[in-house]
Design a protein around this nucleic acid. Structure first.
Length: 141
DNA sequence: GCCAACGTTGGC
DNA sequence: GCCAACGTTGGC
């Protein structure tokens, strides 16, 4: 299983909205960047993702999983861009802020730290475990 | 609201 | 195919 980080702006797509979509999930639309698209194309059903909010409070707030692999983004009239479907798995007991991630030496190599602009990023298993643990989930589902 | 970093576009 | 100009993103 692979791990990812999915970035969203809270005004556009919040954790609450994601939760409301339930276990069948929703399309992760609006990605218009090749690197991010390629990352989505590499996702497999069941892969886990960190749900990260940019904008106001920059933090990881929850865990999502891929429920449908890459397919055309229904919001894209050109047909060039893809999206995956993701469903909420669990909220982190407490959010992990960007500041906390930056302050943790083990997380220095995270793409989030090194390339903050990429909206869909790979995360290593070690990083995944660390962030979940910092969020109060020693054994993430 | 500003600015730095990055990605994309378009002219050559 | 290179590179300058531009636009966008996101952290602060």
């Amino acid at each position: 299983m692979a791990y990812w980080l999915l970035k969203s702006e809270r005004e556009t797509w919040s954790w609450d909205q994601q939760k409301r979509e339930g276990r069948k999930g929703a399309e992760w639309t609006g990605v218009r960047n090749y690197q991010a698209r390629n990352n989505m194309r590499a996702m497999k059903k069941g892969d886990r993702g960190l749900f990260y909010l940019s904008g106001g409070d920059k933090c990881v707030v929850g865990i999502v999983k891929v429920v449908k692999e890459a397919h055309p983004d229904s919001t894209d009239p050109t047909g060039k861009w893809d999206c995956v479907d993701v469903a909420a798995v669990a909220a982190l007991p407490h959010p992990v802020t960007l500041a906390a991630i930056k302050a943790e030496p083990k997380l220095k190599p995270m793409v989030l730290v090194k390339n903050s602009r990429l909206s869909v990023q790979p995360v290593t298993e070690a990083e995944w475990r660390k962030v979940c643990a910092m969020g109060g989930m020693a054994d993430p589902p």
